[in-house]
Amino acid sequence: MSSIDQLASNWVARRYSGRMDAAAEAAFQVWHDADPRHAGAYLRAEAAWVLLDRSQVLTHGDGISEDILSSPLSALPNRARPEPTRRAVLMGTVAASVAALAGMAWFLRSRLSFETGRGELRKVPLADRSLAAINTDSRIDVAMSPRRRDIHLVKGEAWFEVAKNPDAPFVVSAGDIRVRAVGTAFSVRRHDDGADVLVTEGIVETWSVREPGKKTRLSAGDQAFVADAARVATAYEPDEVTRKLAWRERKIILREETLSDAVAEFNRYNEQQIVIADPSLAGLKLVGGFDVDQPEDFARSVHAASEAPVSIRSDRIIIGTQSGAG
């Protein structure tokens, strides 16, 4: 039982006590409406309370044990304690880290590289007060000047929240691909033959240096694959953009992704690589949300859901074959 369920019981007891006043009723409404889970837990608790009235209906009120009338209550144990809050706080506050840097000299960070190892996620404030979140196994080179803000995505993936400055375009290069923003938020993931661009706020412009005249505008909620040959495949899919950026909170979210896609995703973050030994499992459609660094959790859930055998070793996880085989 969660602490929400205990609070729901407390409110039922209070509201059926015959002692509710206007202030308590108002406090109840605030709690009730604060979260759909509160409303649900309260309905459930109240329904159980009303269900118990059936004992009265069914016994016509004469089913009571008489001993109770002669056994007064003595001191009551008071052991009911709410469970500790379980929700972890996700993501540090971006604003705080940016503000902490506000006073830092411009030139100090004008030319810098940031690199992450496998499984690492870094959030770095840049000299112009923009913010970069750098995903697993990635590297960015930053070159800042009063007229230009150039970011070179050497490998991997990064998301940028760009501080507004119309005089200094903010340009990310990933191989032949360029993405330009003035004040906005977007991510770029480098691939061998192009780059994924996801826009979370504002508008960006993207192109390939092979055809600099052919620029494509993308707005918030758009995701695009920009090929080196300058072909751009764009789709307005805000849910998908959010899903693909769950790594900023160290999460992997699956909405009907295949097992092979999910495994590729986990393998970006962990030395403990997952291997699918049985090809017939590769197309299994999955839904769920996980921590990027918990591949064992994921594998166990796959086992619970599909009953595929899973063998977990320190260096790798094999899905689809018994331990020892393969």
Partner: peptide, 13 residues
């Protein structure tokens, strides 16, 4: 899942 909550896996099946 649509709200990016962590909920352990299930197959669509």
């Amino acid at each position: 899942i649509r709200r990016n909550r962590v909920v352990s896996i299930m197959t669509m099946q």
